[in-house]
């Protein structure tokens, strides 16, 4: 199974241009071919890859490369820099409403990790920020979704608001906020049901919840293993709801996670957190530079640069 990282892929090209004083267009083209394959195999969307390669090539063939002492190094550096840049800065901040409670809505496709992440966020808000969140069970469709959130609530000893599965999610959200005000919860975390971005009825339901609760954050929860379709999902959720952040889950797996790049590129929404496991403490801040290395499959970019 040939999922070589870029490191292996570029080795031979870098050998070839090693002695050269500068990198010409043909060299860059050859290196970019390898970069393109590495990105595609990491599941970065092909359109995103195209734009990226175009931009990096322009930069690499330009004067910066001429100034460089070792041309191979320079190209890799440009690739890595552009990628990190595209991925945005470290932004793991969570909004705080002027008047509490701060409302956070979790949205996304089926099975992405919304309910688990709701539990993780509650845990983080209390442990790290000393907050007192209320979890809201607004998934009335998935079998035992409410029970799942209640079990998670119990694990971290936090209250879960539920009205069963016979009341509409919009009404659940409305009553939850009232309750949060009464009981002085500073955060309200709404767990919504998984849905397809093309499901008009269910997307409409999210818009209604948004309209009513005026959330301070709407987090799109995305599985890090998502392939080419990540662009459609992210763009569509963003257009319909106006996302404020992304949580990338299941990054404890061995996927390259190119979806991260696609999502950034099409939604311009910052990736705020990453899920690193099933347990409720497995939520971490997102690091763009680490993600860039991971997508490129360059565990150790420095070694490569030294060899060049």
């Amino acid at each position: 199974m040939a999922f070589e990282g870029l490191t292996d892929r570029l080795q031979s090209t870098m050998q070839k241009i090693r002695g050269k004083g500068k990198v010409n267009e043909a060299d860059v083209k050859e290196m970019m071919r390898e970069v393109r394959i590495a990105l595609l195999e990491a599941d970065v969307n092909f359109k995103v890859v195209k734009d990226f390669i175009k931009r990096v090539s322009e930069r690499a063939v330009g004067q910066e490369v001429l100034k460089s002492l070792t041309p191979g190094q320079q190209v890799i550096k440009v690739v890595k820099e552009e990628l990190t840049e595209l991925m945005g800065g470290d932004q793991s901040k969570i909004a705080v409403a002027g008047r509490p409670p701060t409302v956070i809505m979790m949205v996304g496709l089926q099975g992405a990790g919304k309910t688990t992440t709701t539990g993780k966020l509650a845990n983080l808000l209390r442990k790290k920020h000393n907050r007192k969140p209320l979890l809201v069970a607004a998934d009335i469709y998935r079998p035992a979704a409410i029970k799942q959130l209640e079990t998670l609530g119990k694990q971290i000893n936090m209250p879960v608001f539920s009205l069963g599965d016979q009341v509409s999610p919009v009404e659940i959200a409305r009553q939850a906020i009232e309750k949060a005000k009464e009981e002085h919860h500073d955060y309200v975390l709404i767990d919504t049901a998984g849905r397809l971005h093309v499901d008009e009825t269910l997307m409409g339901e999210l818009k209604d919840i948004k309209e009513l609760t005026k959330p301070d954050e709407i987090f799109l929860v995305v599985d890090a293993m998502t392939g080419q379709d990540a662009v459609n999902v992210a763009a569509s959720f963003n257009e319909q709801l106006g996302l404020t952040g992304v949580v990338l889950t299941k990054l404890d797996g061995d996927t390259r996670g190119g979806a991260a790049l696609s999502i950034r590129a099409v939604s311009q929404t910052p990736i705020k957190f990453v899920g690193m496991g099933e347990k409720l403490d497995a939520l971490e801040a997102f690091h763009p530079d680490r993600m860039a290395s991971r997508i490129l499959g360059m565990g150790d970019v420095l070694t490569l640069i030294e060899k060049a």
């Binding site: 195999e41 599941d43 099975g111 599985d223 293993m225 392939g227 080419q228 979806a259």
Partner: peptide
Amino acid sequence: DATTGQNAL
């Protein structure tokens, strides 16, 4: 999951 990319392999 049909949404999964190359990791499915």
